[in-house]
Design a protein around this nucleic acid. Structure first.
Lengths: 352, 352
DNA sequence: CCAATTTAAGCAATCGATTGCATCCATATA
DNA sequence: TATATGGATGCAATCGATTGCTTAAATTGG
């Protein structure tokens, strides 16, 4: 006799509030109210429900609850890509802030691409997220996509890359100040011919950093040379190439560089080293973002800390407040202060 | 006359299939079937539905669909933390693979902590995810949590850190081989006193890397010294300290180190540099994971590439296949092959 | 020309929890 | 003792889409 072993995925019957209700001879309404700590349920019943729920290993079905109540307890998070430390930290900050409150976080990547951004928002909206925490793409206008959502009443909090023309809550660092203190630091170190790598000026953050750079130069009485403001995306190779151009002619080259990204700065660093140009003696260098690698490279790279995890947490807090607020129309702009991190690449006074 | 501006969040009435049905004088059933390309709907009707849906700016409510159909089109992803490049890349791989198919990805962090792991799984289950792609925590047994889920019929795919005693689909790299080729490479370079940093041996991956290390030594006829197998978590500081111990006595110290993590290796590298011990001349060094920083540090750090984005994509593919397979009981074990990345820290033959 | 078959669409139950309103009973008040 | 009060629970509709079954119309075939 051959017993055939049928391996079937046994979807164990899921426990519903109905089941609990049956067990204790009550109605689903009562069970629901007991589980959600509604008033008007006797303490006895509440305890009874709670214990039998636990005993029966009950797991609430958020989807059913969401359908009826309109609250899904899921938040959408939009990032350009997950594997840049900055955005990974943002996600970390948000997730750890909201998980306590029982919220889930759906993460979507835009890859800085307009179609993928649309797709991301679409997925989030279909999933009926309670709102969205987002950084926009760098290339062009995300404006329409987001304003539509806003019109539909979807709570949105922007972080880092914001759309200035959209009225919404946001968390950013003071990028102007970041650019300013970075440049000022170079000035303080005695550098006078300070260049700048500017990433996409379609993004507020890079415009602001540039503005800070210019302000610091102006204040120091140094000239602003357009040919020393070089477009350079946040990318090592691009930084290398941009540096190649910038430092090509030995007699008329800058003696310092403030890059709007750590990656650009690293590219420049690699180029300068390849040319045996000494850092910080001959050229001072400072980046932006305090990516982990900045403290591992040689020389260690000065940079601007932007408190990414904290930024994520703050965005999450603002978001949650906005949900619970009765008057949800009040937007909340938070500006974190950047911090100068001085390392070897710009510290000429210590290493003269 | 004073017109008071009341800013109220206007939840624009959401369009439902009912609305579409009304507009074209049909029933929701027909609309639903048309939208989902069910057979038995005339091409005329289908087109009519599709165009009016678009015209009315209809957005399907996945939550309602999920409740009825039992498919939420959301996948749960469990990581220890999002801000380690490896895991960030896993998330990237998964997200980019499944977004095409309309799936959302809920990301939860465990922080290698048992309670948070429970919480994570709880959030995911409440959200009625269609399944879970997970790496387990390093400290102790996640076994119960996951076996319970399996019994409930939740599809699970493990990646990287797996539980060998649970029958489930998984994607890993051949960590044994990784440890083996790393060590063999050091042997090839003429190192004979090769130490090893082993992270938590509760995890299969680190056990396997250690096993590979031992196998390579044995094959090379080199002795296995227990005092050169040092416990060292994946962490720069821990690596620094472990190196401090290991290389304390100049006459009897190892001449090479295979660290089971890049972070440990970096710590060791920093220690060795601080002691002016030349790399790779006096001590050879190789890490594991090919974290981005390994190619920025000085000397550049040899390591083992483990194709993290690809691993994420593969896990996602396996997962989706499993969902669509009729016989979902078939588990699928995928083993990716690691790749040796030789850089300066171990290249004694090139830099003699 | 009528029965058999196919095709297209409608009916109504359902998924699981929430919630406004009704009801019942016990206690307090007149 | 009859009535007002309110605390605790039940009833039933609801959220929006899916789906098994039924029905109506159109097509085919004998």
């Amino acid at each position: 006799m051959c017993k055939r072993l049928h391996k079937v995925r046994v979807k164990k019957q899921k426990i519903t509030i109905q089941d609990i209700a049956n067990r204790i001879s009550m109605t689903p309404s009562t069970v629901s109210r007991a589980l959600n700590n509604h008033p008007g349920i006797s303490e006895t019943t509440r305890q009874l429900v709670l214990t039998t729920a636990k005993a029966m290993n009950y797991r609430p079905n958020h989807i059913a609850a969401a359908l009826r109540s309109g609250k899904s307890y899921v938040i959408g998070v939009v990032v350009p890509r997950t594997d840049r430390t900055f955005f990974a930290s943002i996600i970390r900050g948000i997730e750890s802030e909201v998980a306590d409150q029982g919220y889930g976080v759906i993460v979507c990547q835009t890859n800085d691409n307009s179609n993928q951004e649309k797709r991301a928002l679409d997925i989030l909206m279909r999933s009926q997220v309670d709102g969205i925490i987002a950084s926009v793409i760098s290339s062009s206008n995300s404006r329409n996509a987001y304003t539509h959502l806003q019109e539909e009443g979807v709570p949105i909090v922007f972080y880092d890359r914001i759309i200035e023309s959209i009225q919404a809550s946001s968390v950013v660092i003071n990028d102007f100040r970041g650019g300013y203190i970075a440049t000022q630091h170079l000035v303080d170190q005695g550098y006078t011919k300070i260049a700048h790598f500017a990433a996409s000026l379609e993004l507020n953050i890079y415009r602001e950093r540039l503005r800070g750079y210019k302000a610091a130069l102006k204040e120091a009485g140094l000239p602003i040379r357009q040919d020393w403001i070089v477009h350079c995306p946040s990318d090592i190779d691009k930084g290398f190439k941009a540096a190649q151009q910038l430092f090509a002619t030995p007699n008329e080259r800058p003696d310092a560089l403030f890059s709007s990204s750590d990656y650009g700065a690293l590219g420049a660093l690699q180029y300068l080293k390849s040319q045996n140009i000494r850092i910080p003696e001959e050229v001072g260098l400072i980046g932006f973002a305090n990516e982990p690698f900045t403290s591992y490279v040689e020389p260690t790279l000065s940079t601007i800390e932007q408190f990414s995890v904290e930024m994520g947490r703050t965005a999450a807090r603002i978001f949650l407040n906005q949900l619970s607020d009765t008057d949800s129309s009040i937007n909340h702009q938070t500006v974190l202060q950047p911090q100068l991190i001085v390392r070897d690449s710009s510290n000429r006074k210590l290493n003269p």
